[in-house]
Structure formats: structure tokens, C-alpha cells
Design a binder for these strands. Structure first.
Lengths: 222, 222
DNA sequence: CCAAAAGTGTTAGCGTTACACCCATGC
DNA sequence: GCATGGGTGTAACGCTAACACTTTTGG
């Protein structure tokens, strides 16, 4: 599953950003016309991670892939028709401003409004989304969804879209600064046309996945 | 990996309980004499969980296996000699008082003092132990290590052995009671030979794996 | 001056740890 | 009575959520 936070079509979400997943539409039976996760067969000389990178290269520019991590295995003998196939699912993340070229059969879909999915791919996306939400709470995985430099309000929008609930920029700042997950660059952004104080810019301290705090935070409001 | 908390040999740990893992000693090359994790090949008509249960039946009485869960996949093409093999590791737990029959080539080893291990099995055990420690903090997984009914001091010893650090019985009680992970049975144990107040007995409220709190607790003292 | 956006300060609350203190039993 | 082990009470702390308030910009 490759995820990205990107602006929805205006009709969808009032122009707000939302978490999207990369899918391609099957041209052949079985399940022709339904939407599938990118993937393919494991080669004899590669490990799973290399294989995933190879498969994804056909769908998305790999330089954009900031994080890739194995999630789960689906091994039900009847999970797909035909010869027995075991699927190992991966979580891939693309930073927000990037807009990789896509082949014609491939599109970003908002996770809140998925099309009819092939095989067991629907539950797979569900599972991956849950893992992403959890990991945003106790790791620095946000680095793989955010631009290199960003204002806190931008980061708030990204976290908010990925988590699926409102996020307070103030608290996000304090949580991530305390854990030293983000660092001020010292520079500031220019304020927009409509005025407002210029925002301080931040970057993620590290660009490698790291568990920063086993004690979860960023839980839904209430 | 099948784990159990059991009394160490007196010479090892002063008779205190410790977390053990089930290993068998290879009789044939490659890696003859080294210790291996139980396992085997996946059959055409079974999913991974069924396969693991089948493999383990040879080593340990399955009725004793209170929890079984998939952990990770090891897919390096060179991880074992010979034809390419992909390993999917599982976490299995045996409750504490049980003493299943073992075949002669099989033994419990304390995780703090592992013998020379075959292939990549050493790091696998390490990984599984880390997952177990984490999950003791935010799930009810302790049910699979403890007896049906137990005094709090017993449970403390089990948690302490599995976590690898001192655990305060008072706080363990409060944490697990708050989350309704354990329940008082109403009965009490008899006090030991050396006197002492009789202990209230508890049981785990549920015998099915459940995430009880995403906010970890039971962290090391300090 | 006003609106907009960013940033700071403050408070309240939950959950956990640490530890002192009281209770019940066998000898 | 005394040692032993079980249980309760309490205080302190860390971290987070919620939100009012101040600061800085553009028009």
C-alpha cells in the first residue's frame, strides 16, 4: 500500500487534504474492472523488500518513496483463485508535495472513499491505515509524509488527514519538539496574501524510521 | 518461538523464574549440533497458522498453547543454505504451571542465556522477545503466560521474568484492574509455611488476545 | 484599524511510579 | 510477639489535551 496525503478533488472534501492510496484498475479477469494494490511475484534472488521496490517502480517514481516497511502476511489458501498465493503486505509512504507520474491505469483514491476492490485488498488497506495511524503516535514516521521543510500548520494538516481527526497545531508542536522529532530551521515562511504572522519553518530531525516513544499520543479528541 | 515462564535450574538464576524458549538440537547437517526453532514447511492446503500448529504438535502439547500470533517474515535469499526458503516467525505462549512432555532432542532454554543457534534463529528470538515485552504493556497477553487463577505475587513474578526487570505488585494490580484485564475470583489462597497474609486470587477476565490500552505502561524502573 | 494566521501561556486531568504504612496469618 | 508476605493509601511526576491570549503580518 502506497499512501500519500494530497488535496482531494474539490467536489470530494471541500478542497481539504486527505489520505490517499495508490490503486490500479484490473484490465483482465479475474475481477476485471476492480481496483488492485500494486504488487507482483517474488523473484528467486531478491528479498521481499527488494521485490516490492521493483514492483512499485512500474507504478510510481521510487525516489519519492520515503518509507517502506513490511506489515502482514495473508496466507489463506483460498484468498485468490488459481494457484496458491501468499501475499506479504507493505506500507509505503510518499511525501506530500510530490506528484509522481502515474501510468494510465493507476490512480490515487481517498482511503475514506475506496472503490470496489479486488480479492482481499480492501481489508489490507484498512489494516495498513490502522498501522499508520498508530505509528504516527509513537514514531517519527511523519517524516515520510511531510515536505523537507514545513510550517507547523502544514504539518498539522498532514497529520490531521492521515489520522482522520482534528489535530491541534499547538500540541502537535509540543509533542514532536519534546521528542526531538522536529527541529526549527531558523527560517520563516512568507505570510500569505491574506496576511497573518509568518510561520517558522521546521524539518524532521531524522529521515529514518525510529520509535520515539512507546507511549502513544495524538489520540482522537474527546 | 514458543515461550514459557518457568523456574530456572537452581544453579542458573538462584531458583527464580525466568523466560524460556523451546529449542531443539539439530542432529543433521547443516549446522549439526546447534539449536533450532521448531518449524517446517508450509503445506499446499493450509494457511500459516494451521501450519505452525501442525509443526508444533510434534514438539509440545498443543492444548498448552494459549496464544499464537504471527510476527515477521525473513526473506533474505541467503538466509539458509540450499534452496531458497522464506521464514515466517510466530509467537507462541505456554502458561506457567504447565509442563508439557518434550521429545528427547528438545529443551527449554532461558532467553537470557541462549546456546549457539542455527541460521538466523538467534535474532528471531531476540525480535520475538521484544515484541512480547511491548505487548505485555498494552495488551492482555499475560493471560497466555499465567495460570487460570493466581495470586498477585505470582503474576508479578511472571511479568517480571517476561519483562526482564523488577515489577511492583501494587502497581501491576492497579494497572491491570483499571483496564479490567484481571478480575478477583473472591477466593483466597492459603498462606505458606512461613506465615503471611493469605493472597486474594485473580483470573484474567478474557482469554482472548486484546489490545487494552495503546498507551504503554510497565516500563523499566528508573 | 481590522482580519488572519502563528505562536505562547496556563490549566486541568489522567495514568503511572514509588514508597510508606496497615493487615492477616503461621510459628 | 515476631517474622513473613499481602494489601491499601498517598504523594509526586510526566505527559497530554484544551483553550484563552498575545504577537506579527497584509490590506
Amino acid at each position: 500500500m502506497v499512501f500519500q496525503v494530497r488535496p482531494g478533488r474539490a467536489s470530494d472534501t471541500d478542497g481539504k487534504t486527505a489520505l490517499h492510496v495508490l490503486l490500479w484498475q484490473r484490465a483482465l479477469d479475474p475481477e476485471r474492472g476492480k481496483w488492485s494494490l500494486p504488487g507482483g511475484r517474488l523473484g528467486a534472488d531478491e528479498d521481499l523488500t527488494s521485490s516490492v521496490r521493483r514492483q512499485l517502480a512500474e507504478k510510481v517514481d521510487l525516489r519519492q518513496l520515503a518509507h517502506l516497511e513490511q506489515l502482514a502476511v495473508f496466507s489463506d489458501p483460498a484468498r485468490v483463485p488459481g494457484p496458491r498465493t501468499i501475499a506479504s503486505s507493505f506500507l509505503g509512504l510518499v511525501p506530500s508535495p510530490a506528484t509522481p507520474e502515474l501510468p494510465p491505469d493507476t490512480r490515487w483514491h481517498p482511503v475514506s472513499d475506496l472503490p470496489e476492490m479486488a480479492f482481499d485488498h480492501g481489508p489490507m488497506v484498512e489494516h495498513a491505515r490502522n498501522r499508520l495511524v498508530a505509528k504516527l503516535s509513537y514514531t517519527n514516521i511523519g517524516f515520510a509524509l511531510a515536505p523537507n521543510e514545513f510550517a507547523l500548520s502544514t504539518l498539522r494538516d498532514i497529520y490531521s488527514a492521515a489520522l482522520g481527526h482534528h489535530v491541534d497545531a499547538t500540541n502537535l508542536q509540543r509533542v514532536l519538539e519534546r521528542r526531538q522529532v522536529i527541529t526549527r530551521t531558523g527560517t520563516t515562511a512568507r505570510s500569505g496574501r491574506s496576511g497573518g504572522r509568518p510561520a517558522a519553518l521546521y524539518r524532521f530531525t531524522e529521515s529514518r524510521y525510529r520509535v520515539t516513544d512507546e507511549f502513544a499520543a495524538l489520540r482522537p479528541p474527546g
